[in-house]
Amino acid sequence: MYDAPNPATEVGQQDIKITAKDVQVYYADTHAIKNVNVDIVDRAVTAFIGPSGCGKSTFLRCINRMNDTIDICRVEGDIRIDGDDIYDKRVDPVQLRAKVGMVFQKPNPFPKSIYDNVAYGPRIHGLAKNKADLDIIVERALRRAAIWDEVKDRLTAPGTGLSGGQQQRLCIARAIATEPEVLLMDEPCSALDPIATAQVEELIDELRRDYTVVIVTHSMQQAARVSQKTAFFHLGDLVEYGDTEQIFTNPKDERTERYVTGRIG
């Protein structure tokens, strides 16, 4: 990825990065995702909102095939990134996940040093030729996750010793160290206090210059603040998808309106 700023990030004039067609997800006998069709725009933040259990996290996990690690989960339909079917038999899900990074609900740094946390992905995928190279990758990832200044003096300290907000930014640094194209975030601020949340939100806004960001959130304010596109899920259906401003000010579907105005949830 490149550090060059990319100011042209207005919604509507970008390429489509991810396309999903008729996606169905089943957990054993439960039909968790029904017929979802969505086009996710490159270099923008797309927010998935909806009440708990509506399937937004499940759908997010389809995009990097994390659902493969759950035995009882079955995915049908067609999801393409840059036109390539990610559920094709020739696609290695492990390889795919290096390209589609993920940040989880609860900060989950490994029980290793801050440096080793960030270097984990690059080491696994052989992205660095030597130690000096790895140092550069780690520093760049930490800088881009806006945490470098706070941790540069204690890179050998355990990542688990950081505060919650720092841990989450460390996890974001860890995810972008493998140079993904898409960054999936599953309620990244739900375990954080308001100040840490503001820092992470600022970071997400920064990240859309270089990445396609998809974020699942329970906070409608957060969706309104950070995203350009919003998708509203309800009971496994994608009810409405459009520009964030339109979803929050002028929703087309009655259910969306009731949700964003706080009458169902």
Binding site: T69, V103, T178
Partner: peptide, 11 residues
């Protein structure tokens, strides 16, 4: 969460 984090990085 530890395993998810690692799988999510393509391990």
């Amino acid at each position: 969460a530890m395993r998810d984090g690692s799988y999510g990085l393509g391990a």
